Amino acid sequence: MNAHGLHEPLLDAHPLLTALSAPSRAADIDEADDVYGWLVGSWRMQVLHYRDDLRAAPLQGEIQFGWVLEGRAVQDVWIMPPREQRTGAHAAAHDMYGTTLRVWDPAVRAWRVTYLNPATGQRDELIGRRIGNAIVQIGTHANGTPIRWNFTDIGRDSFHWTGVALAPDGITWVLEAEFAAQRVRG
């Protein structure tokens, strides 16, 4: 355990991590289809909205991305607050320790995206594609509510991410989350 009473991260030599991780994308995924590989690395995020407008007092978070499953998927972990600030006393409404698995599906020439956050019970399924200069992921929450998650303002070392859900009126899209991310390493 570290000074914060948290368990240290598993070493890269752990058999599960060794079997899971991959050094790069699989050769059978064309470079043009590599929508998520540029994300591989470590990121800090400023949380602008997470169920509530947090711009007046933004929270911080971290995101870790890596190639997995012989390079046929990109997996991430979204953590809020970041690990060095996780004491167990953070607000449950702003707790995130979830993972996204983005798996290339050559049959649909798109990425199948699954997000799970055990801290809140959230589960989402989407299809991700590059559209212009953005990455657009369209799908549903577990309860069937339509959602759209977008990576925009993409730079080599930054991106803007928004997540919206269709309101019960079937017309209005409601902002659920908004993050501004900066690359730390990778």
Rank of each mutant, 00 (worst) to 15 (best):
G71E: 09
I63V: 15
V77Q: 15
A89N: 08
G71K: 08
L69Q: 08
A91I: 02
L54S: 08
G61D: 02
P58C: 06
V68K: 10
L59Q: 06
Q85P: 05
A93R: 12
V68F: 13
Q85C: 10
P81L: 02
F65M: 05
V77C: 14
R55S: 13
M80P: 03
V74P: 03
M80Y: 01
D53W: 12
Q85D: 12
V77L: 15
D53L: 09
V74H: 02
F65N: 03
Q85I: 03
P82G: 07
D76S: 11
Q60L: 04
P82Y: 00
W78V: 14
T87L: 06
R86M: 06
G61Q: 02
L59D: 03
T87P: 04
G71H: 07
G66W: 10
D76P: 06
P81I: 01
R86I: 04
G66Q: 13
L59R: 02
T87R: 07
E70C: 15
I79T: 10
L54Y: 13
I63M: 15
G66E: 07
H90R: 11
F65E: 00
D52Y: 08
R86A: 07
L69I: 09
D53R: 10
V68N: 11
Q85N: 10
E70S: 15
D53A: 08
G71C: 09
W67L: 09
A56D: 14
R86Y: 04
A73M: 12
Q60Y: 01
F65H: 10
V74A: 06
A57H: 14
Q85S: 11
L59N: 04
E84T: 02
V77Y: 06
R55T: 15
E70T: 13
E84V: 01
Q60I: 00
R86N: 03
Q85V: 04
P81T: 02
R55H: 15
G66H: 12
I63L: 13
G66N: 04
R55C: 12
Q64F: 11
D76F: 08
A57W: 11
E62N: 09
P81E: 01
R86K: 13
A57D: 15
Q64R: 14
V74T: 07
Q85R: 13
A73F: 11
P82Q: 01
A92W: 11
R83H: 10
A93C: 11
H90L: 03
Q75M: 15
Q64D: 14
G61S: 03
I63D: 13
A57T: 12
P58M: 04
V68D: 05
A93I: 00
A91M: 07
V74R: 06
A91R: 08
G66L: 12
I79Q: 09
A89G: 06
H90P: 02
A89Q: 08
I79F: 03
L59C: 05
A91Y: 03
H90I: 01
I79S: 11
L54D: 08
G88A: 06
E84H: 05
D52N: 01
E70K: 15
D52W: 02
R86S: 06
E62S: 14
D76E: 11
P58I: 04
G66I: 02
E62L: 02
Q85L: 15
T87S: 12
V77M: 15
L54N: 07
E62K: 05
A89L: 11
A89E: 04
V74L: 12
